[in-house]
Design a protein around this nucleic acid. Structure first.
Length: 451
RNA sequence: GCGGCUAUAGUUCAAUGGUAGAACACCGGUUUGUGGUACCGGACACGAGGGUUCAAUUCCCUCUAGCCGCCCCA
């Protein structure tokens, strides 16, 4: 068989066997977080984690999968989230289950299920993790997204609302973000309903002036008209009746008290009558957090504030799930959004500390001993790297160079016999032979000098 | 769910109606236990499926995915 026919043959065979199934790909709206990005995540999560612990919040980790009815009952059947954005499916037992689209419902469920009303009130909880929504992916929007979530159960005092808002601000500020919090009060469900009725009447009389979208909103989601960006609608919204003017007396007082608390803190907030949250369970305080991105950039999209998250009060939620009447207030902050904002500001988290030493080994015996030596260095607090899989000194030093390490430690056959080791200064190539037993000590001396 | 734009190596980008190049990165080599430079070599790509055509990566359609806007929200 000639070489030619052989290649032909393998080619044919190849094209037949080429039926290789397409390589699996990421699901739409899902993504991998690679090590380069992970530093941003660590930074955001750790900041939130330690701050929340400091403020007396306890971590709770609820399942990502829950009974579908939990979300239907709490978030509301007619909200966008429940009506079209949930990852819902039937499990093998025929039960309808749903990937959590948010955390609060699960918190409330856990509160009831574990009888947390028997604990000293208020119960303060937080959780950091993923939630899922079957939404169309976009900038800062994914089907799996991560939230920092914290809530206070069992305290209806305005100071609880203020604490949640303050902590939202604090965490963002610690992350170097320039924050503005938009605050509003939704009143009680009753007063809100009443207001929506009034608003409906108002817009109905001007129906023909509204944009197409708003005509639809008129019946379905009247409050949203206030938020419309169309010039005409915006004009109308300006002179529309205001929600704050139709609050019940208690809600009004509550709202004023929240604002008073915020005034005393350094939280930069502004009143925004158009903050309406998309979930049914909210009452009274509602707020959203925005990160301001520098105006210096010419690009419009670059300077648009990023919505980081939002929250509010949900006094009826626990009761709705069969628990005792328990007030609650909380917030959800999107980690992706935070990272987005940090990146747009051109900030980098103090990246994890650079490795200081590279351990190179030569020869079989030395390689075997390298693990032990590595562990000696590691436990001595020296940030060490190695590449045990490579045997050539050249390639190991190359690797060391790429890592930007200060010193290389070389352990070869010869050194092993003498119980010594070579320290190589990567900057100038000067090498010294030191006792194997003293290596950690010697390195520390040098590293200290370097600083 | 609706609209616009896009889809070429790991990455950033080229070119072309006759099956593709660069840069950086990656792997290996320039004699044996010494990196940062240089030189040499190597692997890797036209998102998927149809159609038009003698011929498609290039033109058309569908799908998928990404980006942006709407909606909504984290």
């Amino acid at each position: 068989m000639t070489a030619d026919t052989q290649t032909k043959k393998t080619k044919q065979a190849g094209s037949h066997a080429k039926r290789t199934p397409k390589p699996p790909k990421l699901l739409r709206g899902f993504r991998d977080i690679l090590p380069e990005d992970s530093i941003f995540w660590q930074h955001a999560k750790q900041t939130a984690f330690s701050t929340l612990l400091d403020y007396g919040y306890g971590e709770i980790d609820t399942p990502m999968l829950e009974q579908t009815s939990l979300f239907k009952r709490t978030i509301g059947e007619h909200t966008d989230i429940v009506s079209k954005e949930m990852f819902t499916f039937e499990d093998k037992g025929g039960d309808s289950v749903t990937m959590r689209p948010e955390f609060t419902a699960s918190f409330a469920r856990a509160y009831v299920e574990h009888g947390m009303f028997n604990r000293p009130q208020p119960v303060k909880l937080f959780s950091i993790g993923p939630a899922f929504r079957y939404d169309r992916p976009q900038a800062g929007r994914f089907r799996q997204f991560n939230q920092i979530n914290f809530e206070i159960f069992g305290n209806d005092h305005p100071v609880a609302d203020a604490e949640i808002i303050f902590l939202s601000y604090l965490i963002c500020k610690q992350l170097g973000l320039d924050i503005s919090i938009h605050v509003n009060s939704l009143g009680t469900p009753e007063s809100r309903e009443e207001y929506v009725g009034i608003l409906k009447e108002y817009f109905k009389s001007k129906r023909r002036l509204l944009c197409e979208d708003c005509k639809k909103r008129l019946t379905k989601n009247t409050l949203r008209i206030l938020d419309c960006k169309e010039e005409e609608c915006n004009q109308l919204a300006q002179s529309a009746p205001q929600l704050v003017d139709h609050l019940d007396e208690e809600s009004k007082q509550h709202f004023v008290a929240v604002l008073e608390h915020l005034d005393e803190s350094e939280v930069p907030y502004e009143l925004n009558p158009y903050i309406v949250r998309g979930l049914d369970y909210y009452n009274r305080t509602a707020f959203e957090i925005f990160a301001k991105i520098g105006e210096h950039t010419e690009d419009q999209s670059e300077s648009k504030p990023i919505a980081l998250g939002g929250g509010g009060r949900y006094d009826g939620l626990v009761e709705l799930l069969g628990g005792r009447e328990t007030p609650g207030v909380g917030v959800a902050i999107g980690i992706e959004r935070i990272i987005d904002a940090i990146k747009k500001l051109g900030q980098k988290p103090t990246s994890q500390k650079k490795p200081q030493v590279f351990l190179a080994q030569l020869g079989e015996e030395a390689t075997k001993h390298a693990f032990t030596l590595f562990e000696t260095l590691r436990t001595a607090g020296i940030r060490t790297r190695a590449n045990f899989a490579k045997s050539g000194l050249k390639e190991q030093l190359e690797h060391a160079d790429k890592l930007g390490v200060l010193y290389a430690v070389i352990l070869g056959q010869k050194e092993l016999l003498d119980e010594t080791v070579i320290i190589r200064d990567m900057e100038n190539g000067i090498q010294e032979v030191v006792d194997l037993a003293k290596i950690a000590e010697e390195l520390k001396k040098r590293l200290k000098k370097g600083i």
